[in-house]
Structure formats: C-alpha cells, structure tokens
Amino acid sequence: MLTITNLSASVGDKQILRGINLTVNAGEVHAIMGPNGSGKSTLAQVIAGHPGYEVTGGSIEYEGKDLLELEPEERAHAGVFLAFQYPIEIPGVTNAYFLRTAYNEVRKARGEGEVDPMDFLDVMAEKLKLVEMDESMLHRSVNQGFSGGEKKRNEILQMAVLEPKLAVLDETDSGLDIDALRIVADGVNKLRRPGNATIVVTHYQRLLNHIVPDFVHVLAGGRIIKSGGKELALELEARGYDWLLEHETTAGAAR
C-alpha cells in the first residue's frame, strides 16, 4: 500500500528526515517510536502533504501513485488520513458543517453522491457512539473550547467519517488520561479493516497496549535505526532509547 524510499525532508534550512525507508501493507499496523525531535511528526506531516516541509529526496508511493505529486486534499480523497498531534481550532465553522463538507468532498472524489444535512445526521449518530461523544458537539465550532481529550476524540471521529485506507495517528495518545486513551484506542481498533493500514506515531509504549502493532520502528536523527515486532516497544519502554542511540553512533563511526 505504502512504500517510502530513501525519503529526505527539511524545514527551512534544517534537514529533518535523512533517508527513511518504510513499507506498509494492507492490514498492518506500524508503530513509529523515537525520542523527541527525531522526525516522527515530520514524517506524518510529509505523508499528509503539509506545505511547510520540503521533500529534498526520495519518494513515497501509495497504491501505485506518486503521493508527493498529490495536493493534501487529493491525498485525503485517495484515502490518506492524518490525525493531528495538535488539532486546529476553527472558530465560526461548526463541526457538523465541517464534517459534512469533508464527507461530501471525499464522496464526490470517489464518484459517490453528496449527502444532505438530514441524512448526514443519521450517518453521524453511529460515528459519535464510536468515540463516545454527544451530538451537541456537532453544533460547536471545530475544536474551539475542546479539552485535549475532546480534540483527540474529534480526530478519530473525523477518521470514522472519512473511512481512510491509510490512517496516520500522530501522537494521538499525548495528553490523554487513561479513560480518554481507551476511548481513542477502541475507536481506532473498531475502524480497522483487513484492507486498511495504520501508522501509529507515539512517544510512549502505553498506546501500543491498546493498538497492538505488527511492526515497531525506531526513528532517530531522521532515519529508522531499528525495526522489530511489538516486543521492541516493550524493550524501549524498559530500557529507553539511549542504548539504541549509542549503538547507532558506534555503527555510524564504524561505517
């Protein structure tokens, strides 16, 4: 589904990603872990097409298409979804309007008909249950005045509405208490389908108790320095990142 080859990216003069290689197949859950500033969020943003990052080398192939050639909205139409680490507040636009507009834009792109406001409410009733949110949230402005937990649940709600093929969750667990974490993780798990894939970017192992990954990758200094199964996450939890980083330094010096 997704093949990232030797991807490099920068912000301004600062090189952040330095040759990422990653392959994600349908049905898989990949966790990307790593210390602060390792480039995890940059990778997530580059996949979504954030204009603030410049891709300086490499490629991303998604379902046979050159993902980097697509505008952010075209990526969304093609089934790519980023759950933001810091969801944006949009005063003056209600969630109902926002979600319906997004839903219809994606449907249009898929050659399906638009849904009117009344029918959309029916669609929403079921989705709201998934993230244990009340219908009243639909009448509030997008993320405005939302608690941290509500914002993250709203991200998962949007994911439920758009039904992406590839979901990238960028530190969706950060700032959540255990109840909110459970709700968010349950939501993600219920949205898993054999044809879909999920990339979970996280700083902590605890989310991975709820969303169990098939593969764990450690990102440091803009490169994936180690990959393994879910047990790698537990090892990282127990030992931290330093042992890997030292190993990397040594290896780098030896090269």
Binding site: E73, V93, Y97, T101, E105, L162
Partner: peptide
C-alpha cells in the same frame, strides 16, 4: 491545511474560512 487534509479543496477551504 487542516481543511485540505480532510479532503476540502483549496478554493472551498478559502471560502469556508
């Protein structure tokens, strides 16, 4: 960008904002 990442085209995003 938030709107675009949800599939809303550039023109619609500008209009909506």
């Amino acid at each position: 960008f938030y709107l675009k990442s949800r599939g809303v085209g550039a023109e619609s995003a500008r209009q909506l904002l």
